[in-house]
Amino acid sequence: MNFPTDLKYTTKDEWIRVEGNTATIGISDFAQDALSDIVFVEYAVSEGDDVGKGDTLGTIESVKAASDVYFPVGGKIVAVNEDLLDAPELVNTDPYGEAWMIKIELGDPAEVESMLDAAAYEADTKGRE
């Protein structure tokens, strides 16, 4: 299981990568593994939307499970990765790379601080096994 140390995480398995005032959001390797073969990705938001922390970002479905994805931070959406709509399996093969889901302009950078670092997130996932 891969827990890159340059990312921040939530206990609901979203990760976030901050570059300047922009953050990229996706779901973790642990989450894709638990869902198994992902067959469908759907977004609940579009580019340009203003969203708050905790709002629903979208849904990821595998054959046996469906998981909602939430915004770990609020802000304005600047990009949506539409490639996942046609190639949802990217979430399984490259969760931290090609399978990024949304880029957001941070509303309140302080929200990032409250998220888990890689070690804390890894510990959290261990507790759930």
């Binding site: 054959v63 469906a66 909602d68």
Partner: peptide
Amino acid sequence: LSAREQHIRRER
């Protein structure tokens, strides 16, 4: 497409 259904999504 059973991930839409009650036995997986329950109250959702």
